[in-house]
């Protein structure tokens, strides 16, 4: 099962490598991992997307909790949550027809064109993993030069929050 685990950890040198090292040492899978400081500069927030059986996920959360730098974590997928990923895509857009087609797709998916040259468009798309995937698939007929995905960030719905 795909899980999104949100982790608050001390914003210390090496904290990221402890998490990354834990996953590789124990053979856990990481689909994506994002990390950045929070409004409290002493804390970083990390979002890890992983897959595993319930047992594996239980071990992952326990092992993460065991890391001395980890303050708190939740498995967002255990409850209502919102996930977002940002994707930047550079595509070939030279002829008028091609440019129209890309623009239409971007509109359908409510993305944006954020950079334009006479032969390329750079597109921005935000959404959950499925939407971002679907948008990428819709570009099948277009020549894609470059894809940059931020990895997933997530937050609980309603009052559900991860804070100290």
């Amino acid at each position: 099962m795909r899980r999104i685990i949100s982790v608050l950890l001390e914003n210390e040198a090496g904290a990221l490598s402890r998490v990354a090292g834990l996953f590789s040492a124990r053979g856990y899978n990481i689909e994506s991992l994002t990390v950045a400081p929070t409004d409290d500069p002493s804390l970083s927030r990390m979002t890890i997307v992983t897959r595993g059986t319930d047992n594996v996920i239980e071990q992952i959360t326990k092992q993460l909790n065991k890391l001395v730098d980890v303050v708190k974590l939740i498995d967002l997928t255990e409850g209502q949550h919102i996930e977002r990923e940002l994707m930047l895509v550079k595509v070939v857009a030279s002829g008028g027809e091609q440019r129209e087609e890309v623009k239409r797709l971007v509109d359908i998916f409510r993305g944006r064109i954020i950079d334009v040259t006479d032969s390329t468009y750079t597109l921005e798309m935000t959404g959950n993993g499925d939407k971002v995937d679907a948008f990428l698939q819709s570009l099948a007929q277009v020549e894609v030069i470059e894809v940059v995905r931020s990895g997933v960030s997530g937050i609980g719905r309603g009052k559900r929050a991860l804070s100290v």
Binding site: A13, G14, S17, R18, G21, A25, V68, D69
Partner: peptide
């Protein structure tokens, strides 16, 4: 040192 020992310590520190 912190990197080499990381997988076999409970925790480690580099004093800066």
């Amino acid at each position: 040192t912190v990197g080499i020992t990381r997988p076999c310590v409970k925790h480690n520190f580099l004093v800066s």
